[in-house]
Design a protein around this nucleic acid. Structure first.
Length: 577
DNA sequence: ATTAGGG
DNA sequence: CCCTAAT
């Protein structure tokens, strides 16, 4: 991205706007702390934050551009023309298809609590029978991918309002949230039981094929995207991440490559290709020489984001893609990177030295100061991070290691297995649906289907990218970050309600398996929590409710089910059989 | 690994 | 959502 705004940054004053960490950062981690020492190398650490703030500040200026949907994303060499159709298809109405939980096809005896395998019983409780009504509506537009040919049962009639009898015959008419994107793209659906097919638009049978396409975008597109999405980074909170060395790194996508230039003369990334690690360049601003107290003023012209590999089904929507990229960026930027300083191509390791001692002074504007993103634990390691499987390394020969990225975009299938997914993508739940419309209007001019995969490659100088963390180290709990908030959609709520009606409130594992088996981002704890909030929501006045409104009908069912299962629970506690 | 609840 | 105690 090319930031229009120059940064007049003063290390002394820390005039860089710093967005305080959200609520949970009370531990002090992640909050940029003011350092008393002046002109210390460590001060550079806040550059990341600087970047983040820039993003924020530039959001407004880019809003128009984005809002108009002109070019929030720009994949080079692609021809996305059916994007809107895709959007329409995937987001029309509920995201979930309807279906029953095959695993739970048979009813459950409410009273039996325990392992699901022991409780599967044919038949419904009266409660279930009653509440099965209405199920199966709303989300019958689509067929399940692999069963496109078959429609409904021979009767040709979908059990929209299964009576108790029907329920008994058909087994439960549960729904299962099914995420073809393995939850990453938040494209889910519910499946019908093996026999019930949903009629509707032809499914995308290729949806299951996770393909990565490489895509690239020019710096503008990339930048725009980041800028736009930076907003959603706000709620992105992390704990256990920041420490003394990286405490200054903002969690809002601040770990970007930056190009700093004290003068107005832009120092483009293309100029620093020599240094492998140099992801940015900087020129010390010139001021009166010799003055020790002078601040080194830097102007960050642009920031870049490390190379990203995105594994996303071709059926994913642009919105999904954007979210995915956003997540990737967020993950990369927020987790394991810290800023490395390069002076004339040499890594500056002594954080205690002052800028002047290091040779970074205002008068010495010829010294090219570079920034690089590097793995958190690689401070001592040499430029090559090949040793660390968690990181992608850019070889010094950028022509070899880098160029491919921008070209693999085309038809080439760049399959990245789950195991190799370096980045854990979590899509942003908030504004999920709303984002879509605008995204559909993007200038993408290529059909997603044409692309096997999309690998967003910032057209910006790839040489600038030195290290790409692909996955945060699983073993290091210190880097655990708060999961991104993903509000339950109405569809999910409905699925949850239905599952709970059937399984009860004390078997979240089963509920998960039944209705959210394919929604990896929803754990049974999440479901339990959601139910808790649903009950609460149902009890408060509609005015007090927030977020996407949940149909009263669902809330009523929540209360009914809750009451029912509470009663059951009591019964068994009092008079267990 | 799950469940149940508080935060 | 997170964190944890208790299963």
């Amino acid at each position: 991205m090319v930031l229009q705004k120059n940064l007049n940054y003063s290390f002394n004053g820390y005039q860089v706007p710093v967005v305080p960490r959200a609520s949970r950062s009370t531990r002090g981690k992640g909050t940029i702390r003011k350092k008393s020492e002046n002109n210390q190398i460590q001060a550079f650490e806040i550059l990341a934050s600087v970047a983040g703030n820039f993003l924020q500040e530039n959001e407004n200026s880019n809003t128009d551009n984005t809002a108009s949907g002109k070019e929030p994303v720009d994949f080079v060499g692609t021809d996305v023309k059916d994007v809107q159709d895709e959007e329409a298809r995937l987001y029309k109405g509920d995201l979930f298809e309807h279906g029953s939980c095959s695993e739970n096809a048979s009813g459950f005896v409410p009273g039996l609590q325990g392992k699901h395998s022991e409780q599967r019983v044919v038949g419904y409780s009266s409660f279930l029978g009653n509440h099965l009504e209405g199920q199966g509506q709303n989300v019958l537009e689509r067929e399940e991918p692999d069963h496109g040919a078959s429609k409904l049962e021979s009767s040709g009639k979908y059990v929209e309002k299964p009576s108790l009898e029907e329920g008994l015959r058909h087994g439960s008419a549960g729904r299962k949230l099914f995420n073809r994107d393995d939850d990453e793209n938040f494209i889910s659906c519910t499946q019908l039981s093996s026999k019930n097919k949903i009629s509707g638009p032809p499914p995308d049978t290729s949806s299951q094929r996770a393909k990565s396409v490489s895509g690239s975008k020019n710096s503008n597109g990339w930048d725009n995207y980041v800028l736009e999405s930076s907003q959603r980074m706000y709620p992105f909170k992390k704990r256990k991440f920041f420490n003394q060395t990286s405490s200054s790194t903002s969690d809002r996508g601040s770990h970007c490559h930056g190009i700093i230039d004290t003068s107005d003369t832009r120092v483009d990334g293309a100029n620093h290709g020599a240094a492998i690690e140099a992801s940015s360049s900087m020129a010390g601003q010139q001021v009166h020489s010799g003055s020790r107290d002078c601040n080194v003023k830097l102007s960050i012209k642009s920031f870049k984001v490390p190379e990203l590999f995105i594994d996303i089904p071709e059926t994913a929507t642009i919105g999904s893609l954007k979210r995915t990229v956003m997540e990737a960026v967020t993950t990369i930027l927020g987790d394991e990177l810290h800023v490395g300083i390069l002076l004339q191509g040499k890594k500056v390791r002594d954080d205690s030295k002052t800028l002047i001692q290091t040779g970074i002074s205002q008068e010495d504007k010829h010294h090219r100061l570079g920034f690089m993103l590097e793995p958190r634990h690689s401070k001592i390691s040499p430029p090559s991070y090949n040793q660390d499987p968690c990181f992608l390394t850019a070889s010094s020969n950028r022509d070899i290691s880098r160029k491919p990225t921008s070209l693999m975009i085309q038809q080439r299938t760049y399959n990245v297995s789950q195991e190799h997914s370096l980045i854990k993508f979590e899509s942003c739940g908030e504004g999920d649906i709303n984002v879509v419309p605008s995204l559909a209007e993007t200038s993408l001019n290529n059909t997603m289907s044409k692309c096997r995969a999309l690998v967003a490659v910032p057209a910006i100088n790839m040489e600038a990218l030195a290290v790409i963390p692909f996955r945060r180290k699983p073993g290091n709990p210190d880097f655990a970050q708060r999961r991104i908030r993903r509000p339950f959609s109405v569809s999910e709520v409905e699925a949850l309600v239905q599952a709970v009606e059937k399984l009860g409130t004390g078997r979240w594992r089963d509920v998960k398996q039944c209705a959210f088996d394919n929604a990896k981002h929803r754990t049974y704890v999440d479901l339990k929590d959601k139910w808790k909030t649903l009950v609460h929501t149902a009890r408060i006045s509609p005015q007090q409710r927030r977020g996407e409104p949940v149909p009263q009908e669902l809330l009523d069912r929540v209360l009914s089910a809750h009451a029912y299962w509470s009663q059951q629970q009591c019964k068994h506690q009092v008079k267990p059989l």
